[in-house]
């Protein structure tokens, strides 16, 4: 198997200077991930699932540990890589999918979805054609394709967001609850696309509120709840 990620003894906390305190989010996390593997992150609210994904993406700075990413140019520690390298990898190798679209004024839905392909060098017309295919697949009405998503409903924006985030296969895909508040048909389209990307070798780490949705994709799980092993017992006692 082709190794994609080696996470070693990764820890993250937040120093809140105004309170003069430091709060741990997670500590000493280690795992590996190969091409085509799907890792499910579990844990109660506040366990640090989103924080771990953001740390891997470098939106958060790791406190310690290593995030060795095996890319086409070699192995790079994302925890310490130069900003310019992270920007480059985000454009070509590492995707982050949330439920929220960052719409831009006066950029049409189809142009927004086509953008990752355009940036990777695809000709304009071919990229637009692909974009329309994925807008269709996720159930965005054709009359909206040329319109500006800034005016779309929450659900419509979310579908545009997924089409854009998943149009270009990437080596590593981080997913933070992408199915939340999505309708059934769009959810099915998402699972189909993820299965296709996985078969093509994309490694994935995801948080899903309803893991049942992705049950067929899951290879491994990590529970970030502190003392996860005894956690269920304690829940029973509390309830």
């Amino acid at each position: 198997m082709t190794r994609i990620l080696d996470v070693r003894a990764l820890s993250k906390g937040f120093t809140m200077h105004h309170l003069d305190t430091r709060m741990a989010a997670f500590s000493d996390i280690s795992f590996t991930l190969d091409a085509g593997e799907f890792l499910l992150l579990k844990g109660r609210n506040g366990a640090g699932k989103s924080t771990l994904l953001r740390t891997l993406y470098r939106s958060y700075l790791a406190a310690s540990g290593e995030i060795l990413f095996h890319g086409p140019e070699g192995v790079i520690d994302l925890a310490r890589a130069a900003d310019v390298d992270v920007t480059y990898l985000r454009r070509t190798e590492i995707g982050f999918v949330t439920q929220f679209l960052t719409a831009r004024p006066r950029v049409s839905a189809e142009a927004l979805v086509a953008e990752p392909l355009r940036r990777s060098g695809a000709p304009a017309e071919a990229a637009l054609e692909q974009a329309r295919h994925w807008l269709q697949a996720f159930g965005v009405k054709p009359e909206l394709w040329a319109a500006y998503p800034t005016t779309f409903s929450g659900g419509e924006q979310q579908k545009v967001n997924l089409a854009r985030a998943l149009i270009l296969p990437q080596r590593l895909l981080l997913l933070d609850e992408p199915t939340a508040s999505l309708d059934v048909s769009a959810r099915a389209a998402l699972i189909d696309r993820l299965a296709e990307l996985k078969a093509g070798g994309t490694a994935m780490i995801g948080v899903f509120h309803h893991p049942g949705d992705v049950a067929t994709l899951i290879d491994r799980e990590i529970d970030l709840t502190p003392d996860a092993a005894t956690r269920e017992d304690r829940d029973d006692v509390v309830v």
Binding site: H17, R58, S59, Y60, L61, D83, T87
Partner: peptide, 22 residues
Amino acid sequence: EQGLADQVFQDPQHAYTQQLVH
């Protein structure tokens, strides 16, 4: 402090940056 825009805004390290962002 300097860093990727999303990082500086979401996970500011320096006390002054935290104050500015918040």
